[in-house]
C-alpha cells in the first residue's frame, strides 16, 4: 500500500458529510411530497442518494487500497460500461470472437499497461491494435451485412468505455515534480469535479431550470442547470487546489475543462440513447440507470484532463 496522503481521508469524510445532508434533505422531501405529483421525482432523488453512498464507499475503498485497486476498479467499470454499450449495438454472430477479444483481452491489457507504466503502448494499444484487429476478426467470419457499422460501433464503444475511461487511473503514472506519492489525488480531483458538475447541474436544473438546451434529445438539460453547475463545479475545483499540483487559477481552468467536456460527453451519449430508443444504458445503479449513464461525462473529460496535466505539469 502506498503512503496515503491525508487529504484523501479528509475528502471522503467531507463527501460523507454531504451525503448525510443529502439523505436528510431527501428524507424531509419524501415526507413533504408523499402522494403528490412530485413523488416520482423525490423517489428517484432518494434512490440516487442511496446509490451514491454505495459508489462513494467503493471509490474510497479502492483509493485507500492503492494504485492496483484503483486500476482494477476502473478496468471493471470499463467492462461493465462496454457490456451496456454493446448490448445496444447491432453486432451479429460473426462479431462474437471480436467481442470476446474486446472484453477479455483488450480491456485487461489496456489496464495492465497502466499497471506496468508502459505509456507508449497504453496510448496506442486500442486506437491502433484493437482498431485493426476487431475488423480482421469479424471479417474472418465472412458476414458482410452492415459490416462497417458493426465494426465501427464496436471500435467506438471500446474507445469510449475502455480507452477514454482508462485515462483516469493513467493519471497515477504521471511523474510530476514535487507531487510524487500523491497522484491518486489527481484521480480523486478529476472524478470528483466531473461528478460534482453532473450533480450540481441536476440540482440547479431542478431548482431553476427553465430553458431547455436540447429538449428533444435530453429533456433534463437546461441552460440554468448548465451555467449553475459548471460555475459551481469550477469554484469547487478552485477551492480544492491544495490537493493538486496546480495553482488556484490553473485548478479552476482545469475544472472548467473537466465540466465542459463532461457536459458535452453526456450530450453525445444522450444522442446515442435517443437514437436507440432507450432512456438509460442499464439498470445497475438504482435511480441513475446504468454504469455508462453515470460515467459518460468522465469518459469524455478524462483524456483531455490527462493530456493537459501531462503536457503542462509532468516530466517525460
Amino acid at each position: 500500500m502506498m503512503n496515503l496522503p491525508h487529504e484523501i481521508l479528509l475528502i471522503f469524510a467531507a463527501l460523507g458529510g454531504v451525503l448525510l445532508v443529502a439523505s436528510g434533505v431527501g428524507f424531509s422531501l419524501r415526507a413533504r411530497f408523499a402522494g403528490g405529483p412530485s413523488q416520482a421525482v423525490v423517489d428517484n432523488l432518494n434512490a440516487r442518494i442511496r446509490a451514491w453512498w454505495m459508489m462513494i464507499a467503493i471509490a474510497m475503498a479502492a483509493t485507500v487500497a492503492g494504485a492496483p485497486a484503483i486500476i482494477g476498479l476502473f478496468g471493471f467499470l470499463s467492462f461493465l460500461a462496454f457490456r451496456e454499450f454493446i448490448t445496444q449495438t447491432p453486432v451479429r454472430r460473426a462479431d462474437h470472437v471480436a467481442l470476446f477479444v474486446s472484453f477479455f483481452i483488450a480491456i485487461p491489457v489496456q489496464y495492465g499497461l497502466i499497471g506496468i507504466g508502459w505509456y507508449g503502448l497504453f496510448a496506442i494499444f486500442i486506437p491502433v491494435y484493437a482498431f485493426l484487429s476487431l475488423p480482421i476478426l469479424s471479417a474472418l467470419m465472412a458476414d458482410e451485412r452492415k459490416f462497417l457499422q458493426r465494426t465501427a460501433e464496436m471500435q467506438w464503444g471500446l474507445m469510449i468505455c475502455a480507452y477514454c475511461l482508462s485515462h483516469v487511473p493513467a493519471l497515477l503514472t504521471l511523474d510530476i515534480p514535487g507531487y510524487q506519492g500523491r497522484e491518486a489525488l489527481l484521480c480523486v480531483f478529476l472524478v470528483l469535479i466531473g461528478q460534482a458538475s453532473d450533480v450540481l447541474q441536476y440540482i440547479w436544473g431542478k431548482l431553476f431550470g427553465r430553458r431547455k438546451i436540447a429538449a428533444r434529445l435530453s429533456p433534463n438539460k437546461t441552460v440554468e442547470g448548465l451555467i449553475g453547475g459548471v460555475f459551481s463545479a469550477t469554484v469547487l475545483g478552485a477551492a480544492l487546489w491544495q490537493i493538486t499540483p496546480f495553482s488556484p487559477l490553473a485548478a479552476s481552468a482545469l475544472s472548467l475543462l473537466i465540466t465542459v467536456f463532461g457536459f458535452l460527453g453526456g450530450l453525445v451519449m444522450s444522442v446515442i440513447k435517443r437514437d436507440r430508443g432507450i432512456k438509460d444504458w442499464g439498470g445497475l445503479l438504482e435511480g441513475h440507470g446504468g454504469i455508462l449513464d453515470r460515467i459518460d461525462s468522465v469518459c469524455f473529460s478524462a483524456p483531455v484532463f490527462f493530456h493537459a496535466v501531462r503536457y503542462f505539469y509532468s516530466v517525460y
Binding site: 454493446i86 448490448t87 454472430r93 462474437h96 470476446f100
Partner: peptide, 18 residues
C-alpha cells in the same frame, strides 16, 4: 431477450451482454 448474442450456436464461450 438477447440470450442468443451471449453465446450463438456454434460457439462454446460466452460474451457478457445484458
Amino acid at each position: 431477450d438477447n440470450a442468443y448474442r451471449v453465446m450463438p450456436k456454434g460457439f462454446f464461450f460466452p460474451v457478457p451482454l445484458l
